[in-house]
Simulated scan of single mutants.
Amino acid sequence: MEAFWCACLLLPKGVIRTIEKACRQFLWGSESQCRMIFFSWKKKVCRKRSQGGFDIREILSWNKTLLLRFFLKYYTHSPSLWIAWSKEYVFKNLSCWDLDADTCISPIWQKILHIRDEFADRVGSRAAAQALFLSWSASGVLPLQDVYKIFHGFHPELRWVKPLLDNIVVPKHAVIATLAAHQALATVDNLCKRGLVLVNRCSLCCADAESVRHLFFQCPFSRDLLQQVLVWQGVTRGVLSLKHELYKLALCRGTKWRRKVACCALAATIYYIWQERNRRVFDGGHLGVGKLLAMIKYDVCVRMYSCSNGVVVSQLLSM
């Protein structure tokens, strides 16, 4: 889809919505489960991982980026039969910047010229767009990633995401930790905002109202679990909030393997806290702090063994 049809024509909005719906259901589950996700597809999911997203391309912006290659081909006088026909019958030997999109007789070129005008607006002016195409015409290659950023928008890098980008972190742990950091999990307070739940009570401590901030790590149960995870790593400080824990890991200057263990352990702790919450809400079962701690240790040791030698694992087991 993204390699062929997006490069041939501007996809109808209905087709794009259908594709994005299928992608959301693949990522989150059924349509009813998708409604429980408080995470914007275009504004969050389609951002780079270093920007707090999942690095999935936004289809419309990518579609426009690929179609601009036709404009560059015309601009560089590419030896193509279609380009030669376009010069003769569509542009009538006009400059590719002079023809108005609304007066163009070709439907495909009309859409490409509208994309040209949008590109010029996004870079500031038509003169700036002309300067960019002039610099690209030397190689005849459109820098797809740069143009995609222009259409999709520029977003700052988030420092707290850095610990979750480490290859040591289990992917499903990283996903849940990212959603938690964005306060996008389907906690009771988020569900109450949509009128889906009437009673707001934390299922872990049964004392305070449930929210992402409470679960990570104001709740006595989750705070006790993370405290034991920190003690296992040889850390003696107290437990901080989720964002502060991530920031502290991003600024950590310890040895390489200790940083990896800390990143993997924090993501696993967030994942198992959320899993325990769902176990109590939906299954009626529960596991204690000791059992969850053993599961976290096991996951960390397995990941460290797969990404390093057995010396690190033996050190972890001796802690």
Rank of each mutant, 00 (worst) to 15 (best):
I56H: 13
E20N: 01
V199N: 09
I83S: 05
V15F: 05
W160F: 07
L9T: 02
I37Y: 14
G238D: 09
I83K: 03
I83R: 03
I16P: 04
K73D: 02
L68Y: 00
V229T: 13
V90E: 01
P107T: 09
S40T: 14
V239T: 01
S78D: 07
E276C: 08
C192E: 07
W257D: 12
V289I: 14
A268Q: 06
S211I: 06
W85C: 07
Q227D: 08
R57N: 04
V261R: 08
P163Q: 11
C34W: 15
Q218T: 11
I83C: 07
G14C: 07
L249D: 12
G29S: 09
I273Q: 05
K243H: 14
V281Q: 06
P143M: 13
R277I: 05
L158T: 02
L132I: 13
G290H: 12
C264W: 05
L191M: 12
Q183D: 15
Y247R: 10
H114C: 11
V90Y: 00
Y74D: 12
K297V: 02
G52W: 01
S95Y: 00
M36K: 15
H155G: 12
F282L: 05
H173Q: 06
R24M: 01
E210D: 12
E31T: 09
R35Q: 04
V212Q: 03
K193H: 02
G234P: 12
G284P: 05
Y271C: 08
R223N: 06
I105R: 15
M295W: 11
W41G: 05
P143R: 10
R47M: 02
D299W: 08
Y271V: 02
L132W: 14
H77P: 07
S95A: 00
K13C: 04
C263Y: 15
